[in-house]
Design a binder for these strands. Structure first.
Length: 478
RNA sequence: GCGGAAGUAGCUCAACUGGUAGAGCGAUAGCCUUCCAAGCUAUAGGUUGCGGGUUCGAUUCUCGUCUUCCGCUCCA
Protein backbone atom coordinates (compact mmCIF):
# COMPACT_ATOMS: atom_id res chain seq x y z
CA UNK A 1 0.00 0.00 0.00
CA UNK A 2 1.49 3.26 -1.12
CA UNK A 3 0.83 5.49 1.84
CA UNK A 4 4.02 7.51 1.79
CA UNK A 5 5.08 10.86 3.12
CA UNK A 6 4.85 12.52 -0.28
CA UNK A 7 1.17 11.73 -0.38
CA UNK A 8 0.87 13.03 3.16
CA UNK A 9 2.52 16.34 2.18
CA UNK A 10 0.15 16.63 -0.77
CA UNK A 11 -2.77 15.93 1.51
CA UNK A 12 -1.72 18.66 3.93
CA UNK A 13 -1.36 21.16 1.08
CA UNK A 14 -4.68 20.09 -0.36
CA UNK A 15 -6.39 20.46 3.01
CA UNK A 16 -5.18 24.02 3.21
CA UNK A 17 -5.85 24.96 -0.39
CA UNK A 18 -9.44 23.78 -0.32
CA UNK A 19 -10.49 25.25 3.01
CA UNK A 20 -10.27 22.19 5.21
CA UNK A 21 -7.46 22.84 7.69
CA UNK A 22 -5.31 25.89 8.35
CA UNK A 23 -2.52 26.34 10.79
CA UNK A 24 -3.67 28.36 13.79
CA UNK A 25 -2.73 32.04 13.84
CA UNK A 26 -0.94 31.60 10.55
CA UNK A 27 -0.48 35.34 9.93
CA UNK A 28 1.58 35.42 13.14
CA UNK A 29 3.71 32.47 12.03
CA UNK A 30 1.42 29.95 13.58
CA UNK A 31 1.25 28.30 16.96
CA UNK A 32 2.88 24.91 17.28
CA UNK A 33 0.56 21.93 17.17
CA UNK A 34 -2.63 23.97 16.97
CA UNK A 35 -4.80 24.02 13.86
CA UNK A 36 -8.02 25.64 12.70
CA UNK A 37 -10.75 24.09 10.61
CA UNK A 38 -11.83 26.06 7.57
CA UNK A 39 -15.22 26.19 5.91
CA UNK A 40 -15.06 22.64 4.58
CA UNK A 41 -13.14 21.13 7.46
CA UNK A 42 -15.57 22.46 10.04
CA UNK A 43 -18.51 20.98 8.13
CA UNK A 44 -16.78 17.63 7.70
CA UNK A 45 -15.90 17.55 11.37
CA UNK A 46 -19.45 18.40 12.33
CA UNK A 47 -20.81 15.67 10.07
CA UNK A 48 -18.53 13.10 11.67
CA UNK A 49 -19.45 14.31 15.15
CA UNK A 50 -23.15 14.11 14.25
CA UNK A 51 -22.73 10.61 12.86
CA UNK A 52 -21.07 9.48 16.08
CA UNK A 53 -23.66 11.20 18.26
CA UNK A 54 -26.47 9.61 16.31
CA UNK A 55 -24.93 6.14 16.46
CA UNK A 56 -24.54 6.45 20.22
CA UNK A 57 -27.54 8.36 21.50
CA UNK A 58 -30.16 7.86 18.81
CA UNK A 59 -29.57 4.25 17.88
CA UNK A 60 -29.11 3.03 21.46
CA UNK A 61 -32.08 3.64 23.71
CA UNK A 62 -29.92 3.19 26.81
CA UNK A 63 -27.27 5.78 25.91
CA UNK A 64 -27.77 9.49 26.52
CA UNK A 65 -25.57 12.45 25.75
CA UNK A 66 -24.37 15.31 27.96
CA UNK A 67 -22.19 18.38 27.58
CA UNK A 68 -20.04 18.99 30.66
CA UNK A 69 -17.85 22.04 31.16
CA UNK A 70 -14.20 22.22 30.29
CA UNK A 71 -13.52 23.78 33.72
CA UNK A 72 -13.96 21.35 36.57
CA UNK A 73 -13.35 21.43 40.30
CA UNK A 74 -9.59 20.95 40.86
CA UNK A 75 -10.19 17.93 43.08
CA UNK A 76 -11.57 16.12 40.04
CA UNK A 77 -8.06 15.74 38.72
CA UNK A 78 -6.64 14.54 42.00
CA UNK A 79 -9.33 11.88 42.11
CA UNK A 80 -8.79 10.88 38.48
CA UNK A 81 -5.07 10.49 39.04
CA UNK A 82 -4.07 13.08 36.46
CA UNK A 83 -2.35 15.36 38.95
CA UNK A 84 -0.08 12.61 40.25
CA UNK A 85 0.31 10.25 37.35
CA UNK A 86 0.65 12.69 34.51
CA UNK A 87 3.12 15.22 35.83
CA UNK A 88 6.38 13.41 35.66
CA UNK A 89 9.49 15.15 36.96
CA UNK A 90 12.23 15.05 34.36
CA UNK A 91 15.96 15.62 34.43
CA UNK A 92 18.49 16.17 31.63
CA UNK A 93 22.09 15.07 31.52
CA UNK A 94 24.10 18.06 30.29
CA UNK A 95 26.76 15.93 28.61
CA UNK A 96 24.71 13.36 26.74
CA UNK A 97 21.74 15.73 26.33
CA UNK A 98 19.58 12.78 27.23
CA UNK A 99 16.37 13.33 29.13
CA UNK A 100 15.10 10.99 31.79
CA UNK A 101 12.01 10.66 33.88
CA UNK A 102 13.53 10.79 37.35
CA UNK A 103 11.49 7.86 38.61
CA UNK A 104 12.78 5.71 35.74
CA UNK A 105 16.33 6.88 36.36
CA UNK A 106 16.27 6.11 40.06
CA UNK A 107 14.45 2.80 39.61
CA UNK A 108 17.06 1.65 37.11
CA UNK A 109 19.80 2.59 39.55
CA UNK A 110 18.05 0.80 42.41
CA UNK A 111 17.97 -2.45 40.47
CA UNK A 112 21.74 -2.65 40.74
CA UNK A 113 21.70 -2.31 44.50
CA UNK A 114 20.99 -5.01 47.01
CA UNK A 115 17.29 -5.70 47.43
CA UNK A 116 17.27 -3.95 50.78
CA UNK A 117 19.14 -0.84 49.69
CA UNK A 118 17.13 -0.63 46.50
CA UNK A 119 13.83 -0.77 48.30
CA UNK A 120 14.96 1.91 50.71
CA UNK A 121 15.96 4.18 47.86
CA UNK A 122 12.66 3.68 46.05
CA UNK A 123 10.81 4.41 49.24
CA UNK A 124 12.75 7.65 49.72
CA UNK A 125 12.05 8.65 46.15
CA UNK A 126 8.34 7.99 46.46
CA UNK A 127 8.09 10.12 49.56
CA UNK A 128 9.87 13.00 47.87
CA UNK A 129 7.71 12.68 44.76
CA UNK A 130 4.56 12.64 46.83
CA UNK A 131 5.71 15.82 48.55
CA UNK A 132 6.61 17.44 45.23
CA UNK A 133 10.08 18.02 46.63
CA UNK A 134 12.03 18.48 43.40
CA UNK A 135 15.14 19.78 45.14
CA UNK A 136 15.10 16.79 47.44
CA UNK A 137 14.98 14.45 44.48
CA UNK A 138 17.93 16.20 42.88
CA UNK A 139 19.78 15.83 46.18
CA UNK A 140 18.91 12.13 46.21
CA UNK A 141 20.37 11.69 42.74
CA UNK A 142 23.52 13.59 43.73
CA UNK A 143 23.92 11.71 47.03
CA UNK A 144 23.74 8.36 45.27
CA UNK A 145 26.05 9.54 42.48
CA UNK A 146 23.60 8.28 39.88
CA UNK A 147 25.12 8.54 36.44
CA UNK A 148 23.81 8.81 32.93
CA UNK A 149 24.22 5.50 31.13
CA UNK A 150 25.18 7.25 27.89
CA UNK A 151 27.73 9.82 29.01
CA UNK A 152 28.66 8.11 32.26
CA UNK A 153 28.63 11.45 34.08
CA UNK A 154 26.53 12.89 36.87
CA UNK A 155 26.33 16.34 35.32
CA UNK A 156 22.58 16.93 35.75
CA UNK A 157 20.24 19.85 35.26
CA UNK A 158 17.75 20.65 38.00
CA UNK A 159 14.73 18.40 38.23
CA UNK A 160 11.87 19.98 36.34
CA UNK A 161 8.20 19.30 36.27
CA UNK A 162 6.50 18.61 32.94
CA UNK A 163 2.79 18.94 33.29
CA UNK A 164 0.33 17.24 31.06
CA UNK A 165 -2.42 19.64 32.05
CA UNK A 166 -2.78 23.32 31.22
CA UNK A 167 -3.66 25.44 34.19
CA UNK A 168 -5.38 28.78 34.41
CA UNK A 169 -6.98 30.93 37.06
CA UNK A 170 -10.60 31.02 38.05
CA UNK A 171 -11.74 34.26 39.63
CA UNK A 172 -11.48 37.82 38.37
CA UNK A 173 -9.55 39.13 41.37
CA UNK A 174 -6.00 37.84 41.24
CA UNK A 175 -5.58 37.46 45.00
CA UNK A 176 -8.65 35.33 45.39
CA UNK A 177 -8.17 33.33 42.23
CA UNK A 178 -7.63 29.63 42.42
CA UNK A 179 -5.75 27.47 39.97
CA UNK A 180 -7.88 25.23 37.84
CA UNK A 181 -7.08 23.01 34.89
CA UNK A 182 -8.32 22.72 31.36
CA UNK A 183 -9.59 19.16 31.16
CA UNK A 184 -7.15 16.66 29.63
CA UNK A 185 -10.03 14.30 28.86
CA UNK A 186 -13.80 14.61 28.72
CA UNK A 187 -14.44 11.39 30.60
CA UNK A 188 -14.32 12.94 34.06
CA UNK A 189 -17.24 15.22 33.17
CA UNK A 190 -19.25 12.06 32.67
CA UNK A 191 -18.14 10.39 35.88
CA UNK A 192 -18.93 13.37 38.09
CA UNK A 193 -22.40 13.50 36.52
CA UNK A 194 -23.02 9.80 36.85
CA UNK A 195 -25.62 10.13 39.59
CA UNK A 196 -27.29 13.19 38.06
CA UNK A 197 -27.93 11.40 34.79
CA UNK A 198 -28.77 8.06 36.33
CA UNK A 199 -31.37 9.58 38.68
CA UNK A 200 -32.93 12.17 36.37
CA UNK A 201 -32.95 9.88 33.35
CA UNK A 202 -34.10 6.88 35.45
CA UNK A 203 -31.32 4.94 33.78
CA UNK A 204 -30.97 1.24 34.46
CA UNK A 205 -27.67 -0.59 34.23
CA UNK A 206 -26.30 -1.27 31.72
CA UNK A 207 -26.45 2.24 30.31
CA UNK A 208 -24.11 4.73 28.68
CA UNK A 209 -23.34 8.44 28.81
CA UNK A 210 -21.83 10.01 25.72
CA UNK A 211 -20.10 13.31 25.26
CA UNK A 212 -18.11 15.20 22.66
CA UNK A 213 -15.85 18.11 23.47
CA UNK A 214 -12.50 19.77 23.57
CA UNK A 215 -9.65 18.51 25.71
CA UNK A 216 -6.18 19.94 26.22
CA UNK A 217 -2.79 18.33 26.72
CA UNK A 218 0.69 19.76 26.91
CA UNK A 219 2.27 17.21 24.62
CA UNK A 220 6.04 17.00 24.84
CA UNK A 221 6.27 16.24 21.17
CA UNK A 222 3.30 17.31 19.07
CA UNK A 223 3.61 16.27 15.47
CA UNK A 224 2.02 14.87 12.37
CA UNK A 225 -0.39 17.60 11.41
CA UNK A 226 -3.68 17.31 13.29
CA UNK A 227 -2.84 13.84 14.59
CA UNK A 228 -1.43 15.07 17.89
CA UNK A 229 -2.58 18.53 18.87
CA UNK A 230 -2.48 20.43 22.11
CA UNK A 231 -6.15 21.28 21.78
CA UNK A 232 -8.27 18.50 20.38
CA UNK A 233 -11.75 17.07 20.43
CA UNK A 234 -12.74 13.78 21.94
CA UNK A 235 -15.88 11.74 21.56
CA UNK A 236 -16.28 9.50 24.56
CA UNK A 237 -18.89 7.12 25.83
CA UNK A 238 -18.76 5.58 29.26
CA UNK A 239 -20.85 2.44 29.60
CA UNK A 240 -21.85 1.60 33.18
CA UNK A 241 -22.20 -2.08 33.91
CA UNK A 242 -22.57 -4.65 36.65
CA UNK A 243 -19.24 -5.73 38.19
CA UNK A 244 -18.17 -9.04 36.72
CA UNK A 245 -19.69 -8.38 33.31
CA UNK A 246 -16.78 -6.27 32.09
CA UNK A 247 -15.30 -8.94 29.85
CA UNK A 248 -18.58 -9.43 28.01
CA UNK A 249 -19.18 -5.69 27.45
CA UNK A 250 -15.56 -5.00 26.60
CA UNK A 251 -15.81 -7.55 23.79
CA UNK A 252 -19.16 -6.13 22.73
CA UNK A 253 -17.91 -2.55 22.38
CA UNK A 254 -14.69 -3.66 20.76
CA UNK A 255 -16.66 -5.35 17.98
CA UNK A 256 -19.25 -2.59 17.77
CA UNK A 257 -16.73 0.20 17.41
CA UNK A 258 -14.82 -1.63 14.70
CA UNK A 259 -18.08 -2.15 12.85
CA UNK A 260 -18.80 1.59 13.13
CA UNK A 261 -15.47 2.54 11.61
CA UNK A 262 -16.23 0.28 8.66
CA UNK A 263 -19.93 0.92 8.11
CA UNK A 264 -20.38 4.56 9.09
CA UNK A 265 -16.93 6.01 8.43
CA UNK A 266 -16.43 3.84 5.37
CA UNK A 267 -12.87 2.82 6.25
CA UNK A 268 -11.65 -0.28 4.43
CA UNK A 269 -10.97 -3.34 6.57
CA UNK A 270 -7.35 -3.36 5.45
CA UNK A 271 -6.73 0.02 7.02
CA UNK A 272 -8.04 -0.92 10.46
CA UNK A 273 -6.58 -3.15 13.14
CA UNK A 274 -6.71 -3.77 16.87
CA UNK A 275 -3.70 -3.23 19.04
CA UNK A 276 -3.87 -4.65 22.55
CA UNK A 277 -2.18 -2.77 25.35
CA UNK A 278 0.40 -4.81 27.16
CA UNK A 279 1.18 -2.20 29.78
CA UNK A 280 -2.07 -0.94 31.25
CA UNK A 281 -2.83 2.51 32.60
CA UNK A 282 -3.50 2.83 36.30
CA UNK A 283 -7.27 2.68 35.89
CA UNK A 284 -7.71 -0.20 33.43
CA UNK A 285 -7.92 -3.98 33.53
CA UNK A 286 -8.00 -4.29 29.74
CA UNK A 287 -7.36 -1.90 26.90
CA UNK A 288 -7.23 -1.99 23.13
CA UNK A 289 -6.65 0.59 20.42
CA UNK A 290 -8.40 0.69 17.13
CA UNK A 291 -5.59 1.67 14.81
CA UNK A 292 -5.84 3.24 11.38
CA UNK A 293 -3.22 3.01 8.67
CA UNK A 294 -2.31 6.69 8.28
CA UNK A 295 0.15 7.85 5.61
CA UNK A 296 2.75 7.91 8.41
CA UNK A 297 1.95 4.44 9.72
CA UNK A 298 -0.42 2.56 12.00
CA UNK A 299 -1.63 4.91 14.70
CA UNK A 300 -4.30 4.99 17.36
CA UNK A 301 -7.70 6.25 16.34
CA UNK A 302 -9.81 5.07 19.24
CA UNK A 303 -9.19 3.51 22.63
CA UNK A 304 -11.50 1.02 24.28
CA UNK A 305 -10.76 0.60 27.97
CA UNK A 306 -12.19 -1.52 30.70
CA UNK A 307 -11.86 1.04 33.48
CA UNK A 308 -13.19 -1.12 36.31
CA UNK A 309 -14.78 0.89 39.12
CA UNK A 310 -11.64 2.97 39.47
CA UNK A 311 -13.06 6.37 38.51
CA UNK A 312 -16.35 6.21 40.37
CA UNK A 313 -14.66 4.77 43.45
CA UNK A 314 -12.07 7.50 43.45
CA UNK A 315 -14.69 10.21 43.07
CA UNK A 316 -16.69 8.57 45.81
CA UNK A 317 -13.64 8.67 48.03
CA UNK A 318 -12.67 12.28 47.27
CA UNK A 319 -16.17 13.74 47.21
CA UNK A 320 -17.49 11.62 50.08
CA UNK A 321 -20.68 11.14 48.07
CA UNK A 322 -21.98 7.67 47.47
CA UNK A 323 -21.68 6.92 43.76
CA UNK A 324 -23.53 3.66 43.71
CA UNK A 325 -26.36 1.95 41.97
CA UNK A 326 -29.02 -0.27 43.44
CA UNK A 327 -29.54 -3.20 41.15
CA UNK A 328 -33.09 -4.51 41.70
CA UNK A 329 -32.41 -7.67 39.72
CA UNK A 330 -29.83 -8.93 42.15
CA UNK A 331 -30.93 -6.79 45.06
CA UNK A 332 -27.50 -5.28 45.56
CA UNK A 333 -25.80 -1.91 45.86
CA UNK A 334 -22.55 -1.49 44.00
CA UNK A 335 -20.17 0.94 42.34
CA UNK A 336 -20.67 0.21 38.63
CA UNK A 337 -17.84 -0.91 36.41
CA UNK A 338 -17.17 1.06 33.27
CA UNK A 339 -16.27 0.30 29.67
CA UNK A 340 -14.99 3.38 27.89
CA UNK A 341 -14.90 4.09 24.18
CA UNK A 342 -12.84 7.17 23.41
CA UNK A 343 -12.21 8.32 19.88
CA UNK A 344 -10.32 11.37 18.61
CA UNK A 345 -12.56 13.48 16.37
CA UNK A 346 -9.61 15.25 14.79
CA UNK A 347 -8.01 11.90 14.11
CA UNK A 348 -11.19 10.74 12.42
CA UNK A 349 -11.09 13.83 10.21
CA UNK A 350 -7.49 13.07 9.30
CA UNK A 351 -8.25 9.41 8.68
CA UNK A 352 -11.20 10.38 6.49
CA UNK A 353 -9.09 12.76 4.43
CA UNK A 354 -6.25 10.21 4.21
CA UNK A 355 -8.62 7.56 2.98
CA UNK A 356 -10.45 9.88 0.58
CA UNK A 357 -7.51 11.62 -1.07
CA UNK A 358 -6.64 10.32 -4.53
CA UNK A 359 -4.63 11.56 -7.48
CA UNK A 360 -6.03 9.95 -10.61
CA UNK A 361 -4.74 9.79 -14.17
CA UNK A 362 -6.28 8.28 -17.27
CA UNK A 363 -6.26 8.40 -21.07
CA UNK A 364 -8.86 10.47 -22.81
CA UNK A 365 -10.51 9.22 -25.98
CA UNK A 366 -8.16 11.25 -28.15
CA UNK A 367 -5.20 9.63 -26.41
CA UNK A 368 -4.14 12.63 -24.34
CA UNK A 369 -3.73 12.32 -20.61
CA UNK A 370 -6.24 13.64 -18.12
CA UNK A 371 -6.02 13.79 -14.36
CA UNK A 372 -7.74 15.00 -11.25
CA UNK A 373 -7.33 15.23 -7.51
CA UNK A 374 -10.41 13.97 -5.75
CA UNK A 375 -11.58 13.54 -2.17
CA UNK A 376 -13.74 10.44 -2.12
CA UNK A 377 -15.39 11.28 1.15
CA UNK A 378 -18.43 9.09 1.85
CA UNK A 379 -21.60 10.97 0.88
CA UNK A 380 -22.97 10.88 4.43
CA UNK A 381 -19.88 12.77 5.68
CA UNK A 382 -19.01 15.08 2.77
CA UNK A 383 -19.25 18.79 3.65
CA UNK A 384 -21.20 19.69 0.53
CA UNK A 385 -23.57 17.08 -0.86
CA UNK A 386 -24.70 18.61 -4.11
CA UNK A 387 -23.36 21.06 -6.68
CA UNK A 388 -25.90 22.61 -9.00
CA UNK A 389 -24.41 23.88 -12.24
CA UNK A 390 -26.11 25.64 -15.14
CA UNK A 391 -24.35 24.63 -18.33
CA UNK A 392 -24.27 28.27 -19.42
CA UNK A 393 -25.19 31.39 -17.55
CA UNK A 394 -27.72 32.48 -20.18
CA UNK A 395 -31.05 31.40 -21.57
CA UNK A 396 -32.70 31.07 -18.17
CA UNK A 397 -30.57 28.11 -17.08
CA UNK A 398 -29.28 29.84 -13.91
CA UNK A 399 -32.86 30.45 -12.78
CA UNK A 400 -33.73 26.78 -13.05
CA UNK A 401 -30.54 25.85 -11.21
CA UNK A 402 -31.37 28.31 -8.44
CA UNK A 403 -34.77 26.69 -8.07
CA UNK A 404 -33.15 23.31 -7.54
CA UNK A 405 -30.83 24.77 -4.90
CA UNK A 406 -33.73 26.43 -3.12
CA UNK A 407 -35.64 23.19 -3.14
CA UNK A 408 -32.74 21.22 -1.65
CA UNK A 409 -30.85 23.54 0.67
CA UNK A 410 -33.23 23.03 3.56
CA UNK A 411 -32.31 19.35 3.57
CA UNK A 412 -28.58 19.30 2.87
CA UNK A 413 -25.62 21.49 1.91
CA UNK A 414 -25.71 22.68 -1.71
CA UNK A 415 -23.33 24.69 -3.82
CA UNK A 416 -24.23 26.81 -6.83
CA UNK A 417 -21.63 27.67 -9.45
CA UNK A 418 -21.93 29.18 -12.92
CA UNK A 419 -18.37 30.32 -13.60
CA UNK A 420 -15.97 28.55 -15.98
CA UNK A 421 -16.38 25.51 -18.17
CA UNK A 422 -18.42 22.61 -16.91
CA UNK A 423 -15.36 20.36 -16.74
CA UNK A 424 -13.51 22.83 -14.58
CA UNK A 425 -16.45 23.06 -12.21
CA UNK A 426 -16.60 19.28 -11.90
CA UNK A 427 -12.89 19.26 -11.03
CA UNK A 428 -13.38 21.86 -8.34
CA UNK A 429 -16.18 19.81 -6.81
CA UNK A 430 -13.97 16.70 -6.93
CA UNK A 431 -11.26 18.58 -5.08
CA UNK A 432 -13.50 19.44 -2.14
CA UNK A 433 -15.20 16.06 -2.20
CA UNK A 434 -18.74 16.92 -3.29
CA UNK A 435 -20.30 13.56 -4.18
CA UNK A 436 -23.01 14.74 -6.59
CA UNK A 437 -23.37 17.41 -9.24
CA UNK A 438 -26.40 18.13 -11.37
CA UNK A 439 -26.15 20.14 -14.54
CA UNK A 440 -28.99 22.15 -16.02
CA UNK A 441 -28.88 22.39 -19.83
CA UNK A 442 -31.18 23.38 -22.66
CA UNK A 443 -32.93 20.04 -22.64
CA UNK A 444 -33.95 20.78 -19.06
CA UNK A 445 -36.19 23.54 -20.36
CA UNK A 446 -37.91 21.11 -22.69
CA UNK A 447 -38.41 17.97 -20.61
CA UNK A 448 -37.46 18.92 -17.05
CA UNK A 449 -34.52 16.51 -16.81
CA UNK A 450 -31.01 17.22 -15.59
CA UNK A 451 -27.71 15.39 -15.74
CA UNK A 452 -26.50 13.96 -12.46
CA UNK A 453 -22.79 13.26 -12.30
CA UNK A 454 -21.19 10.99 -9.71
CA UNK A 455 -17.90 12.07 -8.21
CA UNK A 456 -16.28 8.66 -7.71
CA UNK A 457 -17.09 7.08 -11.07
CA UNK A 458 -17.49 10.30 -13.09
CA UNK A 459 -20.47 8.57 -14.68
CA UNK A 460 -23.52 10.60 -15.45
CA UNK A 461 -27.16 9.96 -16.16
CA UNK A 462 -30.29 11.95 -16.86
CA UNK A 463 -32.96 12.11 -14.24
CA UNK A 464 -36.05 14.20 -13.69
CA UNK A 465 -35.39 17.46 -11.87
CA UNK A 466 -37.99 16.50 -9.26
CA UNK A 467 -36.07 13.34 -8.35
CA UNK A 468 -32.84 15.11 -7.42
CA UNK A 469 -33.65 15.84 -3.79
CA UNK A 470 -34.91 12.35 -2.97
CA UNK A 471 -31.97 10.73 -4.71
CA UNK A 472 -29.43 12.71 -2.69
CA UNK A 473 -31.35 12.15 0.53
CA UNK A 474 -31.31 8.40 -0.11
CA UNK A 475 -27.57 8.44 -0.69
CA UNK A 476 -26.66 10.40 2.42
CA UNK A 477 -28.91 8.40 4.73
CA UNK A 478 -27.74 5.05 3.41
C1' G B 1 13.96 18.13 24.14
C1' C B 2 18.34 16.65 20.76
C1' G B 3 20.24 16.20 15.64
C1' G B 4 19.30 17.24 10.35
C1' A B 5 16.61 19.93 6.36
C1' A B 6 13.46 23.79 4.77
C1' G B 7 10.66 28.72 4.85
C1' U B 8 10.19 33.71 -1.95
C1' A B 9 2.44 35.59 -4.69
C1' G B 10 -3.32 31.18 -2.57
C1' C B 11 -0.28 26.63 -4.81
C1' U B 12 4.41 24.63 -7.34
C1' C B 13 8.86 26.85 -8.12
C1' A B 14 12.82 30.49 -10.48
C1' A B 15 16.40 34.68 -9.64
C1' C B 16 24.92 33.43 -12.17
C1' U B 17 30.13 33.55 -7.30
C1' G B 18 25.43 39.43 -2.82
C1' G B 19 23.18 44.42 -7.33
C1' U B 20 16.57 46.24 -4.27
C1' A B 21 11.77 39.59 -7.42
C1' G B 22 9.68 36.51 -12.15
C1' A B 23 6.85 32.31 -14.40
C1' G B 24 3.09 28.60 -14.61
C1' C B 25 -1.23 27.18 -12.25
C1' G B 26 -4.93 29.38 -9.30
C1' A B 27 -8.14 33.79 -8.16
C1' U B 28 -11.26 38.03 -9.80
C1' A B 29 -13.98 40.65 -14.00
C1' G B 30 -15.42 40.01 -18.97
C1' C B 31 -15.63 37.25 -23.95
C1' C B 32 -16.55 32.38 -26.22
C1' U B 33 -24.32 29.70 -26.04
C1' U B 34 -19.04 25.15 -23.52
C1' C B 35 -21.27 17.98 -20.26
C1' C B 36 -15.38 16.40 -17.52
C1' A B 37 -8.98 20.88 -15.97
C1' A B 38 -4.86 23.37 -18.91
C1' G B 39 -9.23 28.93 -25.52
C1' C B 40 -9.03 34.80 -25.50
C1' U B 41 -8.60 39.75 -22.90
C1' A B 42 -7.82 42.51 -18.58
C1' U B 43 -6.86 42.99 -13.28
C1' A B 44 -5.27 42.02 -8.44
C1' G B 45 -1.60 39.72 -5.33
C1' G B 46 5.15 39.55 -2.33
C1' U B 47 8.50 45.25 3.15
C1' U B 48 11.56 37.24 -0.09
C1' G B 49 8.73 33.88 7.92
C1' C B 50 10.35 37.61 11.73
C1' G B 51 14.45 40.46 14.19
C1' G B 52 19.60 41.89 14.49
C1' G B 53 24.68 41.91 12.12
C1' U B 54 28.41 42.38 7.92
C1' U B 55 28.09 45.50 3.34
C1' C B 56 27.57 51.26 -0.67
C1' G B 57 23.76 47.45 -1.37
C1' A B 58 21.11 41.00 1.38
C1' U B 59 16.13 36.59 -1.30
C1' U B 60 21.51 35.39 -1.65
C1' C B 61 26.58 35.73 3.79
C1' U B 62 26.11 35.47 9.37
C1' C B 63 23.60 35.14 14.31
C1' G B 64 19.11 34.70 16.90
C1' U B 65 13.97 33.54 16.82
C1' C B 66 9.30 31.38 15.04
C1' U B 67 7.04 27.62 12.08
C1' U B 68 7.06 23.07 9.30
C1' C B 69 9.10 18.35 7.82
C1' C B 70 12.49 13.86 8.75
C1' G B 71 15.16 10.82 12.48
C1' C B 72 15.87 9.87 17.76
C1' U B 73 13.87 10.44 22.52
C1' C B 74 9.56 11.05 25.41
C1' C B 75 4.50 10.34 26.16
C1' A B 76 -0.36 7.24 25.58
Amino acid sequence: MAYNSDTFQSLISHAKEYGYIFQSSEIYDGLAAVYDYGQNGAQLKKNIRDAWWKSMTQLNDNIVGIDASIFMHPTTWKASGHVDSFSDPMIDNKDSKKRYRVDHLIEAFAENLSAEEGAALIHQMEQLLAADDLKGIKQLIDDNKIKCSVSGTANWTDVRQFNLMFSTELGSVADEASTIYLRPETAQGIFVNFLNVQKTGRMKIPFGIAQTGKAFRNEIVARQFIFRMREFEQMEMQYFIRPGSQKEWYDFWKAERLRWHKDVMGFPVGRLQFHDHVKLAHYADAAVDVEFHFPFGWKELEGIHSRTDYDLSRHQEFSKKKLQYFDTEINQNYVPYVIETSVGLDRLVLATLSNAYAEEKWQKEDGSEDSRVVLKIPANLAPTKLAVLPLTKKDGLPEIARDIVNNCKGSFQCFYEEKDSIGKRYRRMDAIGTPFAVTVDHQTKEDGTVTIRYRDSMQQERIAMQEVKAKIMDAILA
